[in-house]
Write a protein that binds this DNA or RNA. Structure first.
Lengths: 205, 205
DNA sequence: CTAAAATATTGACTAATAGTCATTTTTGTG
DNA sequence: CACAAAAATGACTATTAGTCAATATTTTAG
């Protein structure tokens, strides 16, 4: 039985290797040429795989795009959480602001990532379409949020909705304020955003 | 001189007629078949225009998409503002909630429109790429907001940013709560959203 | 009013691309 | 090892985007 399981996981690993290669190749091309100007042929050429193989794993370009947006936004939050652990911040509100600030700073440094995920930052947290494919060893922001509330004995009317609103607000406003600097550049926007988030977190009952 | 202007406007009108036809045809197809499965040929067939004409006015499908998202979201807000006028609501906060509620209800009724504009509801207000093309006879929500603040003698730290945040929050969360009913269905979400918006509007200095 | 100039429109054409599927290769099983 | 099952291949077809020389329409100016 153990033997069988080992073999099974070996197959899955090989399967995922091809898939992973396709994802990496696609991501590189999407970043350099943009999605519209990237062809399936280029994606498979970029990882020495036949065109037919692409269609074994994905329906089309936009399927890969969707996966990558989820993966990349999840990665952003995971990195933020790792960084948070190194910083020993006790106050719950400050922890949340730290994470948001980390994510925003990463997006400012990597505007090409922001242009790719557009306003879909929250996919990493709320799109469970790929839950089986993306590793989730780290404690997600969702779990951290609820644990933080419990540890600090903070009661919110509905913690899930509050977190949802915060992430959506950050995701959707980053695109405008970082890429187009509208209605104000990100640096001018940040204080207002962080004040608003703190207000949302005080939404007690 | 008047004559010349008349002629000029006649040209512009004819120009816009072709463009308008293309936009209408594209919108119908986008709504029924989706953007991915709509071809340029179908768009031009749908309004008895040659294919080459399409490329006189637009770069590609996504150019038309961008215009339509802006146009349709602007239309939503204009309709909301018209409806507001009929309802004689004096309280400023209630006026804003009325508008947001009207927009959300329209999106619930027309989920195909929501699927089309996705999280870009704010384009109607903040995308000025098409300002010269879209009629703007009605008082925009932007102007109404600032007028409302003035009339009610309400001081916000930065009214533009507050409005921006509200619209982005509504736009980005509607997609998830209406289409996917996540993290909660729209009806359960509304009270939290409206409470949050009222809080944002109390952000005085 | 007319002819030349400027502008707008056309649709046949080419090059590029998506997606399919019969065949081949690799992997697993007894 | 031999057979079965699963995965991968890439030549092929049908579709489509985008171009551009030719044609039609509109404007201007004498």
């Amino acid at each position: 039985m153990i033997n069988k399981n080992d073999k099974m996981s070996k197959i899955d690993l090989n399967k995922n290797k091809k898939k992973q290669k396709l994802l990496e190749s696609a991501f590189n091309l999407f970043m350099t040429k943009g999605i519209k100007d990237t062809s399936i042929q280029e994606i498979v050429d970029g990882c020495k795989v036949a065109k037919g193989t692409f269609y074994l794993y994905f329906n089309d370009k936009y399927d890969i795009e969707d996966y990558l947006i989820t993966y990349k936004s999840k990665e952003l939050f995971n990195n933020a959480l790792e960084e948070l652990e190194k910083n020993y911040i006790n106050n719950f509100e400050d922890q949340i602001i730290f994470i948001i600030n980390y994510v925003i700073d990463e997006l400012v440094k990597n505007t090409n990532i922001l242009n790719f995920i557009k306003k879909n930052l929250s996919q990493g947290i709320y799109n469970d379409r790929f839950n089986n494919l993306i590793d989730n060893d780290t404690l997600g922001i969702y779990e951290l949020f609820n644990k933080g509330l419990k540890d600090n004995n903070i009661k919110l009317k509905n913690p899930n909705i509050t977190l949802f609103m915060i992430i959506e607000l950050v995701g959707s406003t980053c695109f405008s304020t970082i890429i187009e600097e509208k209605p104000v550049p990100i640096n001018e926007y940040k204080p207002f955003l962080y004040d608003t988030i703190r207000m949302m977190l005080k939404d007690k009952k």
